[in-house]
């Protein structure tokens, strides 16, 4: 087990990043909520939902195969907003999950979406489906749902691994509009090749803030940006220190630069 005292500088750095994020959340809640830049993939949601309704086909959402973790909760968060849009159009939402723990949470999220859109009668618990917790059995299950239901749009968000390409390619074959986001950067190239829109990196975590315009979430995004700025400063200082250590002769400055670099060595 790792502890902050094993490397105090890293522990303190994590604490500072947390304080920055919390401070920006609190200031956004009390003051004017900040605005964030346009994210193309999220602007396409209404277009995808509208197209699906015109075609009379359902919308598929998959929160990855990672279980009840932060990426899956974030995905369900986004699906809640998409679900509301789908419910307003009076269309069907199919949620396919690979972890039994997500069945209950997913059902709540989609039911809430239909209820808050004023269409609770359209919610069908059968459309929240646990397919399998085995990677490729789940992939074939999702592929089967896409083929049988001829989904018009699919939202693939969460932790995806080797099954990402199977699911996205089958979606591509039935002509579905596909929006993907994952925390697994090894799967990003597959999604870029097969999906219409891909949320890169932390855009995935910015999505719920962008869609809801909720001050807490917007403040969190601004806090993350300030934290990134701090990381960038440390990276630049680290690069300069590494150059200095290589070029400068032994002495006080050399030792100081070396000590700064050691602070962030894991």
């Amino acid at each position: 087990m790792e502890h902050a005292s094993d490397h105090w500088s890293i522990g303190i750095f994590v604490a500072v990043l947390s304080i920055i994020i919390l401070y920006k959340i609190v200031t956004a809640q009390r003051g004017k909520p900040p605005t964030i830049r346009r994210i193309a993939g999220l602007n396409a949601i209404d277009e995808a939902v509208g197209r699906a309704t015109e075609m009379g086909r359902p919308i598929l959402m998959v929160p990855g195969i990672g279980g009840l973790d932060i990426p899956a909760l974030q995905a369900l968060n986004i699906f809640g907003y998409i679900g509301r849009s789908v419910a307003r159009f009076g269309n069907r939402t199919i949620l396919a999950v690979a972890d039994p723990q997500l069945v209950g949470v997913g059902e709540e999220v989609i039911r809430d979406a239909y209820t808050s859109a004023g269409r609770p009668e359209l919610f069908n618990a059968e459309d929240v489906r646990f397919l399998s917790d085995r990677q490729f059995a789940f992939a074939s299950g999702v592929a089967g749902v896409i083929e049988r239901e001829k989904v018009a749009a699919s939202f693939l968000m969460g932790a995806f691994f080797a099954e990402s390409l199977i699911i996205a390619e089958v979606g591509q074959r039935v002509g579905a509009i596909q929006v993907a986001a994952t925390n697994q950067f090894t799967q990003l190239p597959f999604f870029i090749a097969t999906c219409d829109y891909v949320l890169l990196g932390d855009e995935f975590y910015a999505a719920s803030a962008y869609l809801s315009k909720n001050p807490t979430l917007l403040g969190s995004i601004v806090g993350q940006d300030y934290a990134k700025l701090l990381i960038l400063i440390v990276v630049i200082l680290g690069t300069l220190s590494a150059c200095g250590v290589l070029m400068l002769p032994a002495g006080h400055v050399h030792d100081l630069l070396q000590r700064f670099m050691d602070l962030f060595k894991s």
């Binding site: 994020i21 925390n183 995935f204 993350q224 990381i231």
Partner: peptide
């Protein structure tokens, strides 16, 4: 690495929001 930094900060921020129930309005 840049993508990883962004993702890690996203996880940190989401965890803080969930831990302190700042996000409870959504659920």
């Amino acid at each position: 690495r840049a993508v990883t930094f962004g993702l890690a900060l996203g996880v940190l921020a989401t965890s803080l929001r969930l831990w302190l129930s700042l996000e409870r309005g959504l659920y």
